[in-house]
Simulated scan of single mutants.
Amino acid sequence: MASSLRAGRRLCRALGPGGELEAAGLAPPLRARLEAALATEGAAGAADPRPLVPFRLLRELHEHLREQGSPLFLHELLEGSEIYLPEVVKPPRNPELVARLERIKVQLANEEYKRITRNVSGQAPRRDGTLADFGRQVRSVKAVVIAIFNFIITVAAAFTCTYLGSQFIFSEMAARVLAAVIVASMVGLAELYIMVRAMEGELGEF
C-alpha cells in the first residue's frame, strides 16, 4: 500500500531558500521534517533517486497552508511528483505444500491420460470387459441357435400337419406331399422374415 510519494522538483524548489514555502511561514518542526525528508534519497536499490515524502507530512503541510490562508495550493507543489508504490515481497512458499501440489498435479495428469487412452489401449478393455463381452456373445449365439431350432421345428410341424390332414382331400400321395411342401414353404418364409427382422433389431442395439 502506498504511504509516500517521490518528490518532484517543484516541491524541492519551493522548500529551498527563497522558495514559495519560505513565505508561507512554516512552523520550524514541520519545516525541519520536510527538509529531512527531501534530503534523503529514494529507496535503496531503486532506479529513481528522488526523495520520498510521507503522506502524513503532506497532510500537515496542507493543513498549515489552509490555516494560514495561503494562496499556494498543495496540488501545485506536487507537480511532477509521483506516488511511490513499494515492491511487494512475496512470502516464500511452503516446500511441503509445493511438493503436495506437484503430487496432485501428477496424479491428475495420470488419471487424465488413462481416461483418454482407455479406448486405445488393448489391455484395459480386456481386463474390464471380458466377462460382459463374453456374456453378450453367448447370449447372441444362444438366441441364434434357438431361432434356427424353432424354424426347423415349425417347418417340420407344418409339413407333417399338412401331409396328414390332406389325406381327407387328396387320395394320391404325390398331391399330399406337394400340398405339404407348399404349406411348409409358406410357413418357412414367414418364420424366416420374422427371424430376419428380429436379428436386425438386435444388431441395431450394438
Rank of each mutant, 00 (worst) to 15 (best):
R176V: 07
A99E: 13
D128W: 13
R100N: 04
G165N: 05
E102L: 01
L131V: 12
G42N: 11
V155G: 02
Q167T: 07
A179T: 05
S70L: 06
P51L: 08
I83G: 04
A132F: 07
A47L: 12
E22Q: 13
M1W: 03
A39P: 00
L61V: 02
A24K: 00
L203T: 01
S4G: 02
G201A: 10
L131A: 14
E35N: 05
A180K: 05
T160S: 12
Q167K: 06
A14Q: 01
N150A: 02
G165L: 15
R100E: 13
R33Y: 09
L34K: 01
M199N: 04
E205R: 11
C161F: 11
R136N: 06
R118M: 05
D48C: 13
G18M: 09
R136S: 02
A156T: 14
E79N: 04
V145L: 15
Q68V: 06
T154F: 09
E172Y: 11
N110L: 15
H64E: 15
N110S: 11
L26M: 01
N94K: 04
A109H: 02
F168D: 08
R197G: 10
P95L: 07
E20M: 02
V183G: 08
V144P: 00
N110A: 10
A184F: 09
D133Q: 05
I116C: 08
S166E: 13
S171L: 00
G80H: 03
A175C: 08
N94G: 00
Q123H: 09
L52S: 12
L52R: 15
M173I: 10
F73H: 03
Q123V: 12
S4L: 02
F73Q: 07
G25T: 05
L61A: 01
I116F: 15
D48M: 13
E200D: 06
P91M: 11
